[in-house]
Design a protein around this nucleic acid. Sequence first.
DNA 1: TTGTATGCGTTATCAT
DNA 2: ATGATAACGCATACAA
Lengths: 315, 315
Amino acid sequence: MATIYEVAKEAGVSPATVSRALNGIPVREDLVERVLAASQLLGYSPNRTARDLRRRSSEVIALIIPDIENPYFTALARGVEDRARDAGYSVMLCNSDEDLEKEADYLRIALTGQTAGVIIAHASAKSALGPLLAQGRAVVAVDRVPEGEQVDSVGVDNVEAGRLATRSLMDAGYRVIACIGGPEDVETARERTAGWRAEAGDRAGLLVVSDYRYEGGRRAMERLLAEGSADAVVATNNLMGAGAITALHDAGMHPMEFGVSVVGGLPFAPSWFEGVRVVDLPARVLGELAASTLLDRIAGADDPPRSVIVPIVAH
Amino acid sequence: MATIYEVAKEAGVSPATVSRALNGIPVREDLVERVLAASQLLGYSPNRTARDLRRRSSEVIALIIPDIENPYFTALARGVEDRARDAGYSVMLCNSDEDLEKEADYLRIALTGQTAGVIIAHASAKSALGPLLAQGRAVVAVDRVPEGEQVDSVGVDNVEAGRLATRSLMDAGYRVIACIGGPEDVETARERTAGWRAEAGDRAGLLVVSDYRYEGGRRAMERLLAEGSADAVVATNNLMGAGAITALHDAGMHPMEFGVSVVGGLPFAPSWFEGVRVVDLPARVLGELAASTLLDRIAGADDPPRSVIVPIVAH
DNA sequence: TTGTATGCGTTATCAT
DNA sequence: ATGATAACGCATACAA
């Protein structure tokens, strides 16, 4: 790879002039042209590592999500990406796999590498955002909003989501509504379950705590069917909802006879499941807003941490 | 952030000793301990940008995929990620969105930043891998195998996939089998369509060329239904298959009366569509193998480019 | 084994 | 506006 020195020599100017010409800092017209010609000739493009080292920042933002195979988070990622790209940033997507250790690794990489900022849907409330924040790095929590930390956040009203999902079943005439909950150390899971509880009450055996995954939802549903006391169920996320529907299907039942309401949609499947109620979550918008918030911080906004709640549109 | 100099001073040794102690280069036992204690105390961790600049490499590999919202590619990404992580590398995932310009951006970033290597499922045969290869960077093409380039590649036998999907419908007794093809500048699309053609023949109007996307598959199916000459269809990728099924459903038909065979599966939905035939593609394995291949290259393997074809398991 | 000093490729400071 | 040069933080060649 050609360096800035070679370009300088080729163009007959100093390296400083090359740097300026390429960075939009005023330089005499004809020199700019010589620099451009020389870089073209040598196939030069600046070494980003050196630039980042010198500038102590970069145009990369890290996005850490807990499950890259969950369409909810990929939609969110698209939102982040589109907004970031418009602002000239690229996105490094990291999959923590709901694993605190992997997440810590990626957080460390984001910290020690020169990322301009970090957007994170943390794997657990125990996530170690401390070092990032202490160091003054721009950080935005998305989807999952840490309860203790002083950090910008973008999320939805999960209690309301849980309520809407539940009420939708009640309105349809179902009487005993069970709930498949997510991991207890994930805020969104606790909140959505709380929403269900507020509407449906909480009788023993009606709440099955699972793991936000497809297989977990499936097993939970099997248990509820075996139990036999409910006639409808709220799945607190999309994957568990899919699992529940599968279990229902495998048991030879249709989502009409046993009511199903899911918090969060699955793409490509809107019309396949008549009878399934869906409380859509604005994943992509969450991503866009998180990116906008982060970009503001990077640009130097120093107002106190703000917390954005995106409204849910009921069906 | 603390630097290596501060740690050195705190530990009463030279920066070089700190560097060595931290990188497993022989250093007197008690000095190692002092260095460790000092880094602990100061919360030191090496600046990766500086290290990369000095070493002229890094522990990050870039993975460029054309559609982050396609479960096929996220499964592939998981494969890459798992294998890479085991080897101590982290993965920067980039979404080209089937857009040559975005892809070129990411390729440039991968080139100018110190990535250890690049794994790419290119957006189009026109992708500009040239600069990377010319510069001797490790590159592996996955899923989509460039036809002209001298580069390692990992893919499946797409012609065979197309054949299998078609034959499955023929064996079930369908007579006139249409095909929803993907973009003509994507190798996998051309090959799968070729597989269909080889089995089903190609009569006018039976091939609808689409775009590998959900909506495209939906519209293509609507057209085929309007046309009315076929009694079954091969969708050459998962998303178009989903779109086709939706169109079918919206037209009040079931995948039993109008045969549907899809190349590539959709997750979370195995048992929902009785009657739909699926030729599963080993996306995750593709990712794992691509990562292994890349890691070999990074480690210095200098045998000629190899081309791995992962067998397809028929259902 | 340890320390000193240099260089990785930029950008930014300071003269000019 | 332009050029010489220092500095970003680390790893390593060389000297001790």
